[in-house]
Design a binder for these strands. Structure first.
Lengths: 250, 250
DNA sequence: AGACAATTAAATGTCTGACAAATGAAAAAT
DNA sequence: ATTTTTCATTTGTCAGACATTTAATTGTCT
């Protein structure tokens, strides 16, 4: 039996206890935790241990600390804007570390993205349509680097999901869409492939204007298949090119 | 100008630096970081400060620490199973802290869940179908508490999304589905409403067996509208009942 | 009385030095 | 050859100290 699974460290235990109190609602947004010295006394540990526990919670944005008199650790208001970057980081690492094939990642991403089409067609605004149009214009610039093209692509799709006017939906979809960017950055976009993508983006905007959610679905599906094709070419070349240690440099 | 935005603390800076190295791929899974003493020397800070930085990274599951002679901090393999609970916690808190209406949350959840229907119809397995059937059986037990009914409901829907046989998709959808549980737990499920939900669950299983993804969509949409109706009743009663301080006790 | 400056108290951020506990490797004993 | 012991390394924890930040308080001058 090597699975003895020793007890977690004190700082983990304390962090877990406070986290549970937050999740259960015993501690509300804006509430102040006792000072580090008080927490140390309450839990019978040193201040250093309490601090490590608090840093764990701060890393999850559950608390925020302020210095000075009347400072301390406060239960943080977790906003979607704050949570998004963390989710993107996690999703990106998950994709990178788990031998997920490009195809599986793409399949998930577009399946998820299609969940916004119905609401987007219903609620699209002129402002977001303009954003999408201007991103298409940028993508048509032949001098754009591949990386900038990808960034604009992400911006386009974020505008699409934001068109659904549902914050919760936007949060989940943004994570899924942005996490793909590092994978997309491996692709070399030729003039021909860029033209095809721009064409499908145009199709999406048109369908959105005309509130035809089915056509958005279709364009996204076409985009999915086209992207998978592009991706497989890259992956194949990488494999035959003989597994140079890293997957990022030329 | 009160937005001076003072420099982040040293432990934050160090954590950010290491995190960047991980995300950029400079540090690979399994790599060992220098010992705390070495990191302290390298960054010109004390060991306590380095430790706080490492605890931040550990809280995000980016590293794992081992004690003993050849121990230290190792780049963690971030698995979907590890990341899921964290995502659920975050999603749950986001829902609870952001005055998201029950309707908006439900709308997002079911829109996302419908993104699995096509793949699920294509790939469903007998094992997961059996899981879904047994959860339906449990839900039909009139002695079940409301909380257990909710838990079974979540298990049912997780089996549905897992039927799509796409790990990435399951990850995102599980977060969205499970985050709703605290909100669902506020609902009192009458015998009549339970029967209606079970009926729709049956419909989903049947559609899945017959690979009719459209019918799964329809059942999910019906479930969405029915749940919103139930939820609004609860929210209304809560409002007229005169805002007793907490939203959890009877 | 009111405006401005200095003081003070409370809290986090950081440092130092120490010891405990775990753990694998090497050395010693059988 | 195998088992036991020792040992060095590293994380976990503690205690105490000082630096820094911040808001409230107090003091002073007009």
């Amino acid at each position: 039996m090597k699975n003895a699974k020793q007890a977690p460290s004190l700082s983990v235990q304390i962090a877990d206890a406070i986290r549970a109190a937050i999740v259960e609602g015993a501690l509300l947004v804006g509430d102040r935790l006792p000072s580090e010295a008080e927490l140390a006394e309450q839990h019978g540990v040193s201040r250093a241990t309490v601090r490590e526990a608090l840093k764990r919670l701060a890393a999850q944005s559950l608390i925020r600390t302020e210095r000075g008199a009347f400072g301390g650790a406060f239960i943080n208001h977790l906003s979607y804007d704050e949570a998004r970057p963390q989710q993107v980081t996690t999703s990106t690492l998950l994709l990178g570390m788990n031998a997920v094939s490009f195809q599986v990642a793409c399949e998930a991403r577009y399946a998820l993205e299609r969940s916004c089409t119905s609401l987007a067609a219903e609620r699209r605004t002129d402002a977001l349509l303009d954003t999408m149009r201007s991103e298409i214009a940028r993508q048509s610039d032949p001098d754009l680097t591949d990386e900038a093209f990808c960034a604009s692509d992400v911006a386009f799709h974020r505008a699409l999901v934001d068109s659904a006017a549902n914050e919760v939906l936007s949060y989940h979809l943004a994570g899924s869409v942005e996490a793909m960017q590092p994978l997309m950055n491996m692709i070399t976009f030729t003039a021909r492939s860029r033209a095809e993508i721009v064409r499908l983006h145009h199709q999406i905007v048109t369908a959105l204007v005309e509130r035809r959610s089915n056509q958005i679905d279709e364009a996204l599906t076409a985009l999915e298949h086209y992207t998978i094709t592009l991706g497989q070419t890259v992956m194949q070349r990488r494999r035959t090119d003989g597994m140079s240690k890293d997957g990022l440099t030329s």
